[in-house]
Design a binder for these strands. Structure first.
Lengths: 112, 112
DNA sequence: CGTTTCAATATGCTTTACTATATCAAACTT
DNA sequence: AAGTTTGATATAGTAAAGCATATTGAAACG
């Protein structure tokens, strides 16, 4: 098999999620190596996840987001907008926050 | 190297999540085969996921929960209780719901 | 009875997450 | 300048997800 025919099979995490991860890491002022050692993953893997070259297993991602101060919640479709605005509200720039900025939370782009 | 020393390495999804998945499937009155064909996974895999023999990749799980009428949202730790009660509230039996019951949403058991 | 449906298990195979290591070019530090 | 940090890339190996198929057993039918 030729080596580079269709390299478009990998999906990687949804863009929004990836950006949220990067933002969260920045908010904590952690380097990829910092985060990596905390999660117990090699730095290589953090890079791969953030750049979309890898779609981690759920448990791996769960560890990641928890160490970043987040959690992954299962929420019924109809409630998604409510939860999202709730989250957005709490991240408002009115007062001062714990870290830099944690803005664009994972928008659940559904295209179907 | 002996190959069968500790077979306790598999984690599988968190119990609560697994139960939520099963409940959601039942709520839709779908068999594992039904769900499997909708998601595009073999029934074997659904069984393995539900019984905790497999920890799927995030994207796989995301497909699953979306077809089941849910979504996976990234929410900041401090907001988790609020979101959870919001979700719990919306599942109240006041009116009549689309399907059976969708109770115990994924409790985020952290053991750090 | 036999048949169907459901869930779970088993085997073999392919793909890929994950591990470990080393390297690299930029940016920042001293 | 030399040295460090950061993010990314490369290679190679192992473990496990995912695919396909067949089978099992139990429960609910006829």
């Amino acid at each position: 098999m030729p080596s580079h025919i269709g390299r478009a099979r990998f999906e990687g995490l949804p863009e929004d999620l990836r950006r949220a991860l990067i933002n969260a890491r920045h908010a904590n002022r952690w380097s990829q190596r910092e985060l990596a050692s905390r999660v117990g993953l090699p730095q290589v893997h953090i890079s791969a996840i953030e750049t979309g070259k890898v779609a981690p297993r759920f448990n791996t991602l769960l560890n990641l987001v928890r160490i970043l101060g987040f959690d992954l919640l299962l929420v019924p479709r109809p409630l998604v907008p409510a939860v999202q605005s709730l989250v957005r509200d709490s991240a408002h720039p009115g007062s001062q926050d714990t870290a830099e900025d944690e803005r664009p939370l994972y928008t659940t782009e559904d295209a179907e």
